[in-house]
């Protein structure tokens, strides 16, 4: 009797094992395509994958898709830069200076409990449907994860290392750059990854409600004409952008946290 508990592939097929995680998605997409082609699912509910590819090609040829991706990315980046900077600075300030913490933290925690997407009607009244409103919402969305994780990272700085810094006559600035900030950095980068998630989420909602350009607008506009292929394409682009942002943040972690045993890649 064969005692092998697993069936082993011959060598020339071993690549299949590496690709095994992709098997199910490929089968699902194949089934989806067949189902759409034979009319089991109407294209008004869900278009065939091939239709989505066609929509992507057409929109690329007209350049419309790139224009919209660029606009959405600008909004996301602008909001991240503004909200992230404020979050980082306030997190550092409140983490390091007790008086600042006493005066500001309560206020920040109160604002945190307002769901920022609930502000959309107010934001439209304040800013109209221009860029400012969307950037404002994204900034608000990314502010809290960065603020909270920076604050937490500073508070978690090892008191033993701080005492060691005292023994070595480090001044306040050296103590900050050599000890406090590097110990907070892993936590700050976790905050950044959360913030990137909030960034796209906020933008998706903001762009579907009040806008005349961007990927969200492209999707909402397509909905009016029942172009489900463009709607699904917009969703896929969001997913892709989200994944790209997360990968970038992960690469940043690998780069900046080389010293950390959990980020070491050999």
């Amino acid at each position: 009797m064969n005692k092998r508990s697993h069936y082993e592939l011959p060598n020339w097929l071993s690549w299949l094992k590496d690709a095994s995680g992709w098997l199910l998605p490929i089968l699902l997409i194949a089934f989806w395509d067949i189902a759409a082609r034979y009319g089991w699912i109407t294209s008004k509910i869900l278009p065939a994958p091939s239709d989505i590819v066609n929509a992507a090609i057409n929109l690329s040829l007209s350049g419309e898709i790139f224009k919209n991706i660029l606009i959405s990315t600008k909004r996301a980046g602008g909001g991240l830069l503004i909200g992230g900077s404020i979050g980082l600075i306030l997190g550092l300030l409140n983490g390091i200076f007790r008086p600042a913490d006493r005066y500001l933290d309560t206020t920040i925690q109160m604002i945190r409990n307002i769901p920022h997407l609930a502000l959309i009607p107010l934001v439209i009244i304040w800013f109209g449907i221009g860029e400012e409103g969307k950037i404002f919402l994204v900034a608000l969305g990314v502010f809290f994860p960065i603020y909270a994780n920076t604050y937490h990272g500073i508070k978690m700085a090892d008191p033993q290392l701080l005492e060691m810094g005292r023994v070595y006559d480090l001044n306040h600035w050296q103590l900050f750059t050599q000890v406090i900030f590097p110990s907070a950095l892993p936590s700050i980068l976790v905050g950044l990854r959360y913030a990137l998630g909030f960034m796209w989420l906020t933008l998706i909602v903001a762009e579907t409600i009040a806008t005349t350009s961007g990927i969200g607008y492209m999707a909402m506009n397509a909905r009016e004409f029942m172009q489900t292929d463009v709607v699904v394409l917009a969703i896929l682009i969001y997913a892709l952008l989200g994944k790209l942002a997360d990968t970038a943040a992960h690469l940043l972690e690998l780069r900046l946290l080389q010293w950390h045993p959990s980020f070491r890649h050999s």
């Binding site: 033993q160 005492e163 060691m164 050599q178 590097p182 950390h260």
Partner: peptide, 9 residues
């Protein structure tokens, strides 16, 4: 100190 207290970064 009893621990080396080196900066890990």
């Amino acid at each position: 100190f009893q621990e080396a207290r080196l900066l890990p970064w």
